[in-house]
Amino acid sequence: MSDSMQRTLVLLKPDAVQRRLIGELIARFEAKGLNIVAMKMLQVTPELAKQHYAEHVEKPFYPSLESFITSAPIVALAIDGLDVIQVVRDMLGATSGLKAAAGTIRGDFSSSRQMNLVHASDGPDAAQRELALYFDESEFCDYQPVLVPFLRAGDE
């Protein structure tokens, strides 16, 4: 990947799965021209939740966070693209659906701080750490979509 090409983790959380928004949310990433290179549905265990949210385990809100993330299946996505970490975070909108702008995923589908449908890595180090929690290297399917010349200029 070039310097501006990145890979990030996106989780479609239990509320997105339960509300049957998986296809609609994936369609937004695809319509943006981002490349899904790995995807799986899984049940987050308390152990995985503690690894994923390690920085929050000792905080008072952690038990409710763990209860929520383990309450139903999630869909984990590995997504590639130019500056994809920031692009995806911009697409998600503010953490609280109540504060997220219309047109963002949370602004359009969430009206809660915790039930905010999606998680995305907040930087390159977090992306690398989080991707390793959900995917083995062998699960990434790197490919170049044939429509790339219609998504961005050749020098991007």
Rank of each mutant, 00 (worst) to 15 (best):
E156F: 08
R113M: 01
L117W: 12
S121W: 12
A78N: 10
V88C: 04
I22V: 12
K50Y: 00
A153C: 11
Q128V: 11
Q128P: 02
L9S: 01
L42K: 08
H52S: 05
M39I: 07
K32E: 04
S112N: 12
H56C: 04
V87R: 15
A126G: 02
G103P: 10
K32T: 01
A38V: 00
V10M: 12
T8A: 11
G123C: 06
L147W: 11
V87T: 13
E24Q: 15
A31W: 01
T95P: 06
G23C: 10
T95N: 06
H52R: 09
S96C: 09
S111P: 01
L11A: 03
L77S: 03
P145M: 10
G103R: 14
L65F: 14
L133A: 04
P46N: 15
D136V: 02
D155W: 14
T45G: 00
A72L: 09
P46Y: 14
D108H: 11
Q114T: 06
T95F: 10
F150W: 11
M39Q: 14
A38D: 00
A100K: 10
C141E: 11
V57S: 03
R20S: 02
E137I: 11
M41R: 12
E47Y: 09
E55D: 05
A100R: 12
V17Q: 09
E55V: 03
L92Q: 06
T70H: 11
P145S: 13
F140W: 12
D3A: 12
A94E: 05
G107M: 05
V44C: 09
L131P: 04
D80V: 03
I36S: 02
I36V: 06
M91A: 07
G154T: 14
L98M: 07
D83P: 03
I26V: 06
P145C: 07
L77H: 03
F68N: 07
A102D: 11
G154D: 10
L65G: 05
A54S: 11
D155K: 10
Y62N: 12
E24T: 09
H56K: 12
P63R: 15
A49E: 01
A127C: 02
L117G: 02
K32F: 10
E137F: 05
A38S: 04
E58G: 09
V118N: 01
G97I: 13
S121G: 02
E66I: 09
R152E: 00
L92P: 07
S71C: 09
L48T: 12
L9E: 07
D3N: 14
G103A: 13
Y62G: 04
V84P: 00
L82A: 11
Q43M: 09
L48Q: 09
R19G: 04
I36F: 05
V75F: 15
S138N: 11
D80Y: 15
M39R: 15
Q114H: 14
G154H: 14
K13Q: 01
S96D: 14
D122M: 05
A94Q: 14
R19K: 12
L42S: 04
F109E: 00
L42N: 07
R28W: 02
A49Q: 07
V37S: 00
V84M: 09
R20M: 04
A54G: 05
A132Y: 15
S4M: 12
V146T: 07
L77N: 00
F135W: 11
V84G: 00
K13D: 01
S71A: 13
L21F: 08
F29M: 07
L65P: 04
I85W: 13
L133G: 06
D122H: 13
